[in-house]
């Protein structure tokens, strides 16, 4: 069970980092708070990776070791993306070529101690997701997926996925499989595609059968379990399913595909969700388009363990996070609703 532990107002954004709440207030400055303390007075962004916490400033980044508390300042922007094996990708001389289209030079930097290692030989568009020394990029109006070698600066492969739809999300790599979700418009818009590409060659090596009702967006790779989980519901005032599909990310085998029947009695339709310690925490809507409830399901049995209506909310929910003791939900009125665990559920 959980109980309300209050509402924080004027919250622009928040993140849970090592179980601790960090939030930015919607004020005329850029103060970042942890609990009630200001931890940064001119914050341009905050993030975490491995055992570190990062604070962006205008042209520099503070990296704080969460174990020792030691702080290192590096003279470039880094926000946790593109990090692997003590080095990261940054870019310089970015030129805005058009709406949402930047070209830049890529630079590989060592993080500790900070050092510029080498620059890749060309100018490149956008950025990407890093897997070891491959940089996976979505390009050409989300039709192509490409792999750039960060060792040579050359593209190793590119694959046109236009026939499958518009590339929506890169979900991650498990063994040799690069998992990608795609969206299809028009008559086949309910046929979201889930593909696995061979990370070495870019060839499509697996396509999930279209009969499974998966989401292009509310699908995640659960790395501890090596599985992909999709839960989503439609938008509507009537009762709708929140179908759950779980897929083995190593083999592509569908582990379960079922309705969450425990939600039917209260006509709950799932929006955001998070998996933590064998539970699925979720937001849900009943009669309205926007979420009004939060709750907890047993991950294995899908039994509804707890649910409540969020009181005094303004607008729909725009972010949802959980840690071991709390549920946090941010509404469109910049109110952060906090719930704390009262007993084991």
């Amino acid at each position: 069970m959980f109980k309300s532990a209050g509402i924080k107002k004027g919250i622009e954004e928040f993140k849970i980092i090592t179980d601790k709440l960090f939030y930015k207030k919607n004020e005329n400055h850029y103060h970042l708070y942890a609990d009630k303390l200001i931890v940064d007075r001119e914050n341009y962004g905050f993030f975490s990776f491995d055992d570190y916490f990062g604070l962006n400033h205008k042209d520099s980044t503070d990296i704080i070791n969460l174990v020792s508390g030691s702080k290192t300042t590096i003279p470039t922007t880094f926000f946790g993306m593109g990090y692997y094996d003590n080095n990261f990708i940054t870019s310089k001389n970015s030129i805005r070529e058009g709406a949402g289209l930047y070209s830049s030079n890529y630079l590989i930097c060592q993080l500790f101690p900070f050092k510029e290692l080498y620059e890749l030989p060309h100018r490149y568009y956008g950025s990407g997701d890093r897997f070891k020394n491959q940089y996976i990029q979505i390009q050409n109006e989300r039709k192509y997926i490409k792999s750039l070698s960060l060792l040579t600066g050359k593209y190793e492969w590119e694959t046109n996925l236009e026939n499958f739809g518009e590339i929506r999300k890169i979900l991650g790599v498990v063994e040799n499989k690069l998992w990608v979700s795609l969206y299809r418009a028009g008559n086949e818009k309910n046929e979201t595609r889930l593909l696995a590409l061979d990370i070495e060659s870019g060839k499509v090596i697996f396509e999930l059968d279209h009969q499974y009702p998966i989401s292009d967006w509310f699908i995640e790779l659960l790395e501890e379990d090596n599985s992909l989980l999709s839960i989503y519901s439609g938008i509507g005032t009537q009762a709708l399913d929140s179908p759950l599909v779980e897929i083995d990310a190593i083999t592509g085998k569908v582990l379960r595909s079922q309705r969450i029947e425990s939600l039917y009695n209260q006509n709950l339709k799932i929006g955001f969700w998070k998996v933590l310690e064998n539970k699925i925490y979720f937001t849900a809507n009943q009669d309205y388009l926007s979420g009004t409830h939060i709750g907890v399901l047993d991950y294995n049995t899908l039994e509804l363990l707890w649910v409540t209506k969020v009181e005094n909310q303004k607008g729909g929910f725009k972010d949802f996070q959980v840690n071991h003791n709390n549920i946090y939900v941010l509404d469109q009125g910049n109110q952060l609703h906090i719930f704390e665990k009262t007993e084991k559920i």
């Binding site: 850029y30 341009y44 930047y102 950025s127």
Partner: peptide, 12 residues
Amino acid sequence: PRANYPNLNDRQ
């Protein structure tokens, strides 16, 4: 898409 905006911090 975040990936279209290389090396910009959240505010930028």
